[in-house]
């Protein structure tokens, strides 16, 4: 999906919908209305609005994604403690039910809004928008959005955040990036969590997990850490400081950032391929 028009045409699929392409005409020869819009257009529009809101407050928004139980909330608790005297943090929590995670974060003295999705398996931009109405951003440096624990659906939804962080705990298996490529392709950073447990696990090889990430053509860095033993925590907070600094520099130049999930729009607008972005054609049967 591109930055400008929200379309989703790439050099790889443009020929299908361009004039004369096989999607420009139906089987019985009728011309079709050509739309060329992302199915998640409405979500992306809301996400753009959310991003503007974050940007107006100079906030870096980080989306945390992983399977349930990989240690997202524990990571947040350790991160809040570590940054306490330096950066102001707020949290949006997503779960199907309960306020448990928001309560854990609030116990650390940090504002937190809990979204309970009922049965929805992911957060979308509209849910985050509603949550932002309950979360004043004045004076906040970083907003963490803890997505619903799920390695599938959250990867497809832009929430208006700036960076995706995907956690993989060492109890899960080092082939997760190969099994869930959509999720790990979306990662700007992969965190290998519960790394202190490697001492008692002989079947997780961090290098294999990192190699599986490279097989997805991802350049995302990987950090090995343990929220409990604080191993690697400094590397993680350094990454956060650098990202916040980079985001504030972009904002000073009236730019923002989007997570790793949408590389093709940039390709479109910087490439030489010329395609019609949004063409509405209405036709009757050919005489």
């Amino acid at each position: 999906m591109c930055d400008t028009c929200g379309c989703n045409i790439t050099p790889g699929n443009g020929h299908l919908v361009a004039s004369g392409g096989k999607l420009s005409r139906t089987a019985d020869g009728k011309a079709a209305v050509t739309i060329l819009r992302s199915l998640l257009d409405e979500n992306d529009l809301q996400a753009r609005h959310n991003r503007e809101h974050f940007d107006q407050h100079g906030v870096l928004a980080v989306n945390l994604m992983s399977s349930p139980g990989s240690g997202k909330t524990a990571l947040l608790e350790a991160t809040i403690d570590s940054l306490r005297n330096e950066l102001r943090v707020a949290v949006i929590e997503g779960d199907l039910e309960t306020e448990n995670d928001a309560q854990r974060v609030r116990a650390k003295g940090v504002p937190a809004v809990q979204i309970t999705t009922g049965s929805a398996c992911h957060l979308d931009a509209h849910m985050v928008h509603d949550a932002l109405h309950h979360l004043p951003l004045d004076g906040i440096d970083i907003v963490f959005i803890e997505n619903v624990g799920n390695l599938v659906c959250p990867a497809s939804f832009d929430l208006g955040h700036h960076r995706n962080v995907t956690l993989l705990s060492v109890t899960e298996g080092d082939d997760k990036p190969a099994k869930y490529p959509v999720m790990f392709r979306a990662a700007d950073l992969m965190l290998l969590t519960k790394i202190d447990l490697l001492a008692v696990l002989d079947d997780f090889d961090p290098q294999r997990a990192e190699a599986a990430l490279r097989n997805l053509a991802s350049e995302a860095p990987s950090i090995r850490l343990s929220a409990r033993s604080h191993m690697g925590l400094e590397t993680w907070t350094t990454w956060l400081r650098q990202e916040l600094h980079a985001q504030r520099q972009r904002l000073a130049q009236h730019n923002s950032a989007r997570p790793a999930i949408q590389p093709d729009g940039r390709l479109m607008h910087h490439g030489t391929t010329s395609l019609v972005h949004s063409k509405y054609v209405f036709s009757r049967a050919k005489p």
Partner: peptide
Amino acid sequence: DWHTRLLSGDEMLLASVEL
């Protein structure tokens, strides 16, 4: 080499509607 750029494959696109 793993330094590749995706050309196609992550689309979720409404292509056309016959009215």
